[in-house]
Amino acid sequence: MYLLITYDVSTSSLNGEKRLRQVARVCQNFGQRVQNSVFECLVDPAQFVTLKHQLLSIIDNELDSLRIYQLGKNYQRQISTFGKVTSYEVEGDLII
């Protein structure tokens, strides 16, 4: 399952800055950052449940916003990229 995760965490306090770092860290564990507060993640259903649970346990529902878009099976046809490429093809070949 291909996900697009976006978030806006209030950083008006030190606790907010900590939440912001925690949300980014969790997202990095499951996918790749494509913009400052935007991640693309390719996960299976069990990973999705874990990811969602971890993120919901971090955010403050009164101050923060979290959006998770499930792009479906044919996600590659639904993504158009313009300008500087800041990510890699998740299902493509990776040469190290």
Rank of each mutant, 00 (worst) to 15 (best):
M1D: 08
Y2M: 14
Y2A: 06
L3N: 00
I5K: 00
Y7C: 00
V9W: 05
S10G: 02
T11P: 01
S12C: 07
S12W: 11
S12P: 05
S13W: 07
S13D: 08
L14D: 10
N15W: 08
N15M: 12
G16S: 07
G16C: 07
E17Y: 03
E17F: 10
E17D: 05
K18W: 10
R19A: 11
L20A: 13
L20K: 12
L20F: 15
R21C: 04
R21T: 08
Q22K: 14
Q22I: 02
V23S: 10
A24C: 09
A24S: 15
A24V: 08
R25H: 15
R25A: 15
V26E: 13
C27R: 01
C27Y: 05
Q28K: 10
N29V: 01
N29P: 00
F30C: 02
F30I: 01
G31E: 09
Q32V: 04
R33F: 01
V34S: 07
V34T: 14
V34A: 07
N36C: 05
N36V: 08
S37A: 08
S37R: 02
S37W: 04
S37V: 05
V38P: 02
F39C: 10
F39I: 11
F39P: 00
E40V: 01
C41S: 02
C41A: 15
L42E: 01
L42T: 01
V43L: 12
V43A: 12
D44Y: 07
P45E: 13
P45M: 10
P45N: 12
P45D: 13
Q47V: 13
Q47E: 15
F48S: 06
F48D: 04
F48L: 15
V49T: 13
T50A: 14
T50Y: 09
T50W: 06
T50D: 15
L51M: 14
L51Y: 03
K52G: 09
K52W: 09
H53P: 00
H53R: 12
Q54G: 05
Q54V: 04
L55C: 12
L55V: 10
L55N: 12
L55G: 11
L55R: 11
L56C: 04
S57Y: 02
I58T: 09
I58N: 05
D60A: 09
D60Q: 04
N61I: 11
E62W: 04
L63H: 09
L63E: 13
D64N: 04
D64S: 07
L66S: 03
R67F: 10
R67I: 11
R67K: 14
I68K: 06
I68N: 11
Y69V: 13
Q70L: 06
L71H: 06
L71Y: 07
G72Y: 05
K73Q: 12
N74F: 07
N74M: 06
Y75N: 06
Q76K: 14
Q76V: 12
Q78L: 13
Q78S: 10
I79A: 10
I79C: 05
T81L: 06
T81C: 04
T81W: 10
G83F: 04
G83V: 05
V85P: 08
T86F: 03
T86C: 03
S87H: 01
S87V: 00
S87P: 00
S87T: 00
S87G: 02
Y88H: 13
E89G: 00
E89H: 03
V90G: 02
V90H: 10
V90S: 04
E91T: 06
D93V: 11
D93A: 12
D93C: 02
L94D: 07
L94H: 14
L94C: 03
L94I: 08
I95Y: 11
I96P: 00
